[in-house]
């Protein structure tokens, strides 16, 4: 990594913290800014690492235990870095009735990982969700933020395979 690239990363890093700081400032660094701030951290960095939790706790003058408690209470927050791609299988009622548990099982078998885990090559994270609100299209699977409706085990496998073998 040459010097230029290091600088570039630093600048990007700053930019990402700027969104976090801005969120806290907007809320006057009050305790109720915590959840909004954690959203900002996750949006910037993709996950909440312990250093950012410490930073948020200090900035908002909250005990780290409280910040950690909130970060782990809500399902939306993740403390693990996501893989390059994500595959979210919806396990809401409509999707479940339409057989999404079988879809999940096939993906688990193909990738060898369980929900919440990432493949060893960090290519793919497998997640589950409780309803995306697109029940009319059940069963639904979300690949990299894009909702795919009326999926079958075969079509999901095809998509997963594409993501796993995708090199760039």
């Amino acid at each position: 990594m040459d010097e230029k690239e290091v600088d570039r990363i630093k600048v990007n890093e700053d930019r990402r913290w700027r969104l976090v700081n801005r969120t806290m400032r907007l809320h006057g660094h009050q305790p109720d800014a915590l959840i909004e701030t954690l959203h900002a951290v996750q949006e910037s960095f993709g996950f909440l690492d312990i250093d950012s939790l410490k930073y948020v706790a200090e900035s908002l003058r909250l005990p780290l235990s409280l910040v950690y408690g909130v970060a782990t209470f809500y399902h939306f927050f993740t403390l693990k870095p996501p893989g390059e791609h994500t595959c979210v299988v919806c396990l809401g009622t409509a999707c479940y009735i339409a057989g999404s548990s079988n879809i999940l099982k096939t993906v688990e078998e193909q990738t060898g990982i369980k929900p919440g885990e990432t493949t060893p090559d960090r290519k793919l994270s497998l997640l589950t969700a409780r309803c995306m609100g697109s029940c009319g299209l059940a069963p639904v699977v979300v690949f990299d933020g894009e909702v795919h409706g009326k999926m079958s085990s075969a079509s999901v496998l095809e998509n997963v395979g594409r993501l796993l073998n995708h090199d760039d």
């Binding site: 109720d32 959840i35 809500y74």
Partner: peptide, 25 residues
């Protein structure tokens, strides 16, 4: 606007209030 963070219990009004205050729901 305040964002929820994926907790079903926050539909309950006192839990929802706790969540807006920045605490666990």
């Amino acid at each position: 606007v305040r964002l929820g963070a994926g907790a079903f219990v926050c539909g309950e009004e006192t839990a929802l209030i706790a969540s807006i205050e920045g605490r666990r729901g």
